[in-house]
Nucleic acid binder design. Structure first.
Length: 833
RNA sequence: GCCCGGGUGGUGAAAUUGGUAGACACGCGAGACUUAAAAUCUCGUCACCUUUUGGUGGUGCCGGUUCGACCCCGGCCCCGGGCACCA
């Protein structure tokens, strides 16, 4: 050991030295830069890229360590592994910072990226940094703009009015999180709902496919698929029209509603429209009270949760519609729980058989009419004085020709009756709504549309892309600077050449994160959105990210992928083969967020204990899918374990000199026992890394192995050979979790590089046991344990159990009724008097 | 409110297919080493009863299925995530 300056020399463990040296080596040698020219099978391992909020928090450390562990494990399995990293760089916090500190968003974002990149590097992640991208880079978003114009040409884009949170003081649109208790976060003004023309993308055209493809996603957690299914919300129902008498002076000739319960149609006692519905607005013209009520309805934030939590209120409009089958007059109410953005902005109400309608009807003394009764012989109870009867198991009553029909029969009969009158049709409906992509913000990708008074909305021609967001901007208070920059938005129409204006809204930032995985593969390609390299890397083999993205991001990304497929850009129906959905790292019981500031910055821990200790502590803390409250306690002990239980033991072993070759035939029982544990640990690691993705138990099983090694004091040649095998296995198994220390130790143990190492094979022979411990139960209660030869049969085990004194005590005076035998594990003698 | 998860010692957790509840750690206690401390090592550590190598109870609460339930079923409580403009 003469080269004292190398981390690969023995001596006391210095994590900072080892980590700095290894990281410098990876960078200099381009260890993690991958190409498409490889004989190895490809493996695309992707962790959700971060928003550059300023500094990493523990949620990032967890996410990126888990992804890195998967990637490094696959690399040790002989795969050509791509692990890219980039920045989801557009978004609200940069604007907030700009307003607060007068820093241009681009500058703020770039500085944050630089700092966070250093932090990621200091954690030793095996990223191919040559593929780094930032979504605020025009070379990135130009292809997003290009793709949007492709979607426009495919008819997937349209404009319609939609509600936003309007701050009347700051004269700006607020995000939901900027509305606190109904007031603007800066101005404290009461927020109003306001309608604005917005761009929408027709994700609903793909609703059926987005739903059906979930069945084929075997590598996704069932809970995520369930959430997506419920979100898409396919339902079968009837769309029907309540005609409107012309003598009421309304423009509309009918009110269209959708219902999944056409069997209850004869029980409709009112219909309800949203506060922004034209009928409501018309009625309010001559009714001051109603007008006030509508204004009241507009003082709720545009968020479903707030809608659902508020008290259900309504007012009659004075108008009525005609029941499509009975011809009776039905009153039209305005209700604050009806969504104008969803469906037709109107619902039919059946208070007898819908709980919300029932409560509303009781509150306003609207009649409740029973039209469904429990089926004969059913033990269901229907008491409309207490609650609505919502079961689908009943039969129609008080419904004329439909009386006696059950749900499916009544569904068909009512649909037919409506169809015969031209007033209704069965329809498959989705809860999923089209994706509103317009944002009235500055720090986002400009929407590549030119508004021309002659030609309407015209997509920017491909040759004129990208539409670059100006970055030399001044934030004067709130509001998007580009909306006040005529030099930017004044342009000419690409079609007629006349004066026209650019769209000054920008895209929802989910647009950028919906295709970045494809761009990583085609890194740097200037000739298009993606190239053939994206076909090589293909589907992301493992996608790792927080469970908070279970619905929106993952649904939008799946949608984008399908449209890209239909454009011939990518292959396959789904972008992510396997998904690891991480639980939250909580801070004070809630998720760490941008707004929570620097809570949980890992830097001081890395500085104190080293990256390997931080990574190991994070992996050991909990299985990936579980949320947990972060505590720094484990980091110190992880560092201690690495030093005392890994480094020192390897050093002591190496100090013993040459290690002879292992002779499996010449092992003592003690040597065989340790060797069995070694191979059990390898088998466990394979299962935990490859199948279960539980890395906390990888760590604990290696700890168990090393505890055993430290107790083992067989200095004989074969004893040292078995220990050597144990140490090589432990070091390699730990490599994905603690890559720096293990790379150093592996070189000391073998003289070779850990990147040329092959994963240890499980020796099935070594796993074999001659004897196993059997648990003896009487009536399911533990009464004794004993050693029995491996694979003993039931009779042998019963006989051995009966030799146990304690077992005998519980058998005395009893008659054996039954024997339950779980081979090599348990024998249960069931007795009674 | 709706959808999806979760709840196990003082703490993080383990128990993979219904079969020994608490592995592995943290913390704490005791001991060794030390002039002393730190570091390190060893032992103990779910509760109660007990001379025991024994018994009883115990996985948020209540009930059920089973020879046997942290695990399956029904009802409830609490916590977390999402709810379409935080990302």
């Amino acid at each position: 050991m003469t080269e004292v300056n190398s981390a690969a020399d023995s001596g006391s463990y210095n994590p900072h030295k080892a980590e700095a040296e290894m990281q410098a080596r990876w960078e200099n040698e381009g260890t993690f830069q991958v190409t498409e020219n490889s004989d190895k099978p490809k493996f695309y391992c992707l962790s959700m890229f971060p928003y550059p909020s300023g500094q990493l928090h523990m949620g990032h450390v967890r996410n990126y360590t888990l992804g890195d562990v998967i990637g490094r494990y696959q690399r040790l399995q002989g795969k050509n592994v791509l692990q890219p990293m980039g920045w989801d760089a557009f978004g609200l916090p940069a604007e907030n910072a700009a307003i607060k500190n007068n820093v241009p968003p681009m500058k703020w974002t770039r500085e944050n990226i630089a700092y966070m990149k250093r932090q990621l590097k200091s954690l030793g992640f095996a990223y191919d940094w040559s593929r780094e991208l930032a979504t605020c880079d025009p070379e990135y978003y130009r292809w997003e703009q290009w793709f949007f114009t492709r979607m426009f040409k495919r008819g997937l884009v349209y404009k319609k009015a939609a509600l936003v949170n309007w701050d009347p003081v700051d004269q700006t649109v607020l995000a939901n999180e900027q509305v606190i208790d109904g007031r603007g976060w800066r101005s404290n003004a009461l927020v109003e709902r306001r309608e604005l023309a917005q761009w929408f993308v027709k994700i609903t055209d793909y609703a059926e496919e987005l739903l059906n493809c979930l069945d084929g996603l075997d590598g996704w957690p069932e809970k995520i698929k369930t959430m997506q299914r419920n979100w898409i919300g396919r339902s079968e129902g009837v769309e029907l029209t309540f005609p409107i008498d012309a003598d009421q002076g309304l423009e509309q000739q009918g009110l269209t509603v959708y219902t999944t319960r056409p069997d209850t149609l004869m029980g409709v006692t009112y219909v309800a429209v949203a506060a922004q519905h034209p009928i409501a607005l018309k009625a309010a013209e001559s009714d001051e009270k109603l007008k006030a009520f509508l204004e009241e309805c507009n003082r709720v934030k545009v968020a479903e949760a707030d809608m659902a939590k508020m008290e259900k209120l309504g007012m009659p409009t004075g108008y009525y519609v005609t029941h499509p089958l009975s011809g009776e007059k039905v009153q039209v109410w305005v209700a604050n729980f009806v969504l104008i953005d969803y469906g037709s902005g109107a619902v039919m109400a059946v208070p007898g058989h819908d709980q919300r309608d029932w409560e509303f009807a009781r509150k306003y003394d609207i009649p409740v009419k029973q039209v469904i009764a429990p089926a004969p012989g059913s033990n269901e109870i229907c008491d409309l004085s207490k609650e609505a009867y919502v079961s689908k198991a009943g039969v129609c009553v008080n419904s004329g020709e439909f009386d006696g029909l059950d749900f499916p029969q009544a569904f068909g009969a009512v649909a037919s009756a409506l169809r015969a009158k031209g007033l209704g049709e069965t329809q498959v409906n989705y809860r999923l709504r089209d994706w509103g992509v317009s944002r009235q913000r500055y720090w986002g990708c400009p929407i590549p549309i030119i508004n021309c008074s002659q030609c309407g909305a015209v997509p920017v021609p491909e040759a004129d892309l990208p539409v670059v967001l100006p970055t030399d901007v001044e934030f004067e208070g709130v509001g998007s600077p580009i909306k006040k920059m005529p030099q930017w938005y004044e342009t000419t129409c690409p079609e007629c050449g006349g004066a026209a204006e650019r769209e000054t809204d920008t895209f929802d930032t989910f647009m950028e994160s919906s295709w970045y995985f494809a761009r990583f593969a085609s890194s740097g390609f200037a000739g298009g959105m993606v190239d053939e390299r994206t076909r090589y890397w293909g589907t992301v083999d493992h996608y790792v990210g927080g469970e908070e993205h279970a619905i929106l991001h993952l649904l939008y990304a799946r949608f984008f992928h399908k449209v890209m497929r239909d454009e011939g850009l990518v292959e396959g129906d789904e972008p992510f083969k396997n998904l690891l959905s991480l639980g939250m790292v909580l801070k004070d019981g809630a998720k760490m967020s941008k707004s929570a500031g620097d809570a949980g910055d890992p830097q001081h821990l890395i500085n104190t204990y080293g990256a390997d200790a931080v990574r190991m502590a994070m992996m050991f803390a909990a299985p990936p899918e579980q949320s947990f409250e972060w505590s720094e306690h484990g980091v110190e002990s992880a560092g201690r374990w690495l030093r005392t239980r890994l480094w020192n033991i390897v050093e002591n072993h190496l100090a013993g000199g040459e290690v002879p070759a292992l002779d499996k035939a010449a092992l003592t029982e003690g040597q065989k026992d340790l060797r069995r544990l070694v191979h059990e640990t390898i088998a466990k690691a394979n299962d935990d890394y490859g199948r279960r993705l539980n890395f906390n138990t990888v760590v604990s099983s290696v700890m168990t192995l090393m505890n055993e090694v430290s107790r083992y004091d067989d200095e004989s040649p074969q004893g040292r050979a078995v220990v050597n095998e144990a140490l090589r296995a432990a070091v390699l198994i730990m490599e994905p979790i603690t890559p720096h220390i293990t790379e150093v130790l592996w070189e000391q143990l073998t003289g070779g590089s850990v990147y040329d190492a092959s994963w240890p094979e499980v020796d099935e022979e070594a796993l074999k046991k001659s004897a196993v411990e059997i648990v003896a139960q009487v009536n399911g209660k533990l009464r004794g344990r004993f050693e029995a030869p491996f694979d003993s049969d039931q009779d042998t085990l019963v006989a051995m159990a009966k030799e146990d004194e304690n077992v005998q005590r519980f058998l005395e005076g009893m008659t054996v009724r039954k024997i339950i035998c779980v081979p090599n594990k348990l024998i249960n003698i069931v007795v009674s008097k």
